[in-house]
């Protein structure tokens, strides 16, 4: 198994982001190999997306196929470059203890999950691209696939964020003891310096395996979570607009190949137009 594939597999399984793995507030993800995995997965999806141009009536448009294979990785990396600085700054502004490296690891990990799901849906997109001539249908199918994979990527991010910013077991144990010192028997609390949390704390930290399930009982820092939630919305909008800037991805069958289109309209107007055309 290739190292990049093995690391991506560990992220997907949730092993790379489990409580054991991120005890230091960092995930310790191998960023170079994950970035390589992101590049390869996005290129794979680009190839699948390019089937629409490759199996067009009147012969394949090889240049469009190559263009989309290059553009899908660009879409993700450029969106990351544009949105990451603001995420880190606002994360720091609200007083989060996540460092720059930790935030970057989290973002790369969630993008890796996103593109893995995207690439796994590639064969379905390729099949419909080969068998369908309708441009609006393929456009909407791709938007739907990007949306679904993005939602799963964000789900992964929220869950992993919960693990990273959750109070450490010893802190919870100490907090519990402090609050119960006057009213409960002191013997229930762990001795000072003990790393072993009390039984109720352990129960709260029981997690489900996998990477998009629920982590029960975690206390999320509301402000950090709000920053990340806002960032998710912003990065979705940026990604959509970036896709519009980098268009054409599929290439309209009625138009000759071009690397980029002129600046006009916007992503959402185009999606609505495709939806309207589909029904007409």
């Amino acid at each position: 198994m290739k190292p990049w594939w093995r690391d991506l597999d560990r992220v997907l399984r949730g092993e790379a982001t489990s409580l054991d793995a991120n005890g230091e507030g960092r995930l310790g993800l191998p960023l170079d190999r994950l970035l390589l995995a992101i590049l390869l997965m996005t290129m794979a999806y680009g190839v699948c997306m390019g089937f629409y141009a490759g199996f067009r009536e009147g012969g394949p448009v090889v240049a469009q196929w190559l263009a989309v294979t290059a553009k899908v990785p660009c879409l993700f990396f450029l969106t990351l470059v544009v949105t990451f600085p603001s995420l880190y700054v606002f994360n720091a502004l609200v007083g989060s203890r996540l460092t720059l490296a930790a935030v970057f690891e989290l973002v790369v990990g969630s993008v890796a999950v996103n593109v893995a799901v995207l690439a796994s849906l590639g064969p379905i997109v390729a099949f419909f691209s080969v068998s369908t001539t309708s441009y609006p249908f393929i456009l909407l199918l791709n938007v739907l696939v990007f949306l679904l994979s993005g939602m799963l990527g964000f789900g992964f991010m929220l869950r992993t964020l919960g693990r990273m910013i959750a109070p450490r077991p010893e802190c919870i144990a100490q907090q519990q003891c402090d609050s119960r010192h006057d009213s409960l028997a002191e013997t229930e609390c762990p001795p000072e310096g003990s790393e072993e949390p009390s039984t109720p704390v352990k129960a709260r930290l029981v997690e489900e395996p996998g990477s998009i399930g629920g982590l029960r009982g975690c206390l999320l820092e509301w402000r950090v979570r709000t920053v990340f939630a806002c960032w998710m919305m912003v990065s979705t909008l940026v990604c959509a607009q970036m896709a519009w800037v980098l268009r054409p991805f599929l290439g309209k069958p009625s138009e000759p190949f071009q690397w980029f289109c002129a600046r006009e309209s916007n992503f959402f107007a185009a999606v609505w137009e495709a939806f309207r055309t589909l029904l007409m």
């Binding site: 399984r13 690439a119 064969p123 996998g210």
Partner: peptide
Amino acid sequence: PSFFVLNTLAG
């Protein structure tokens, strides 16, 4: 393939 990845993600 997508079923495989979704199963993996779900643990």
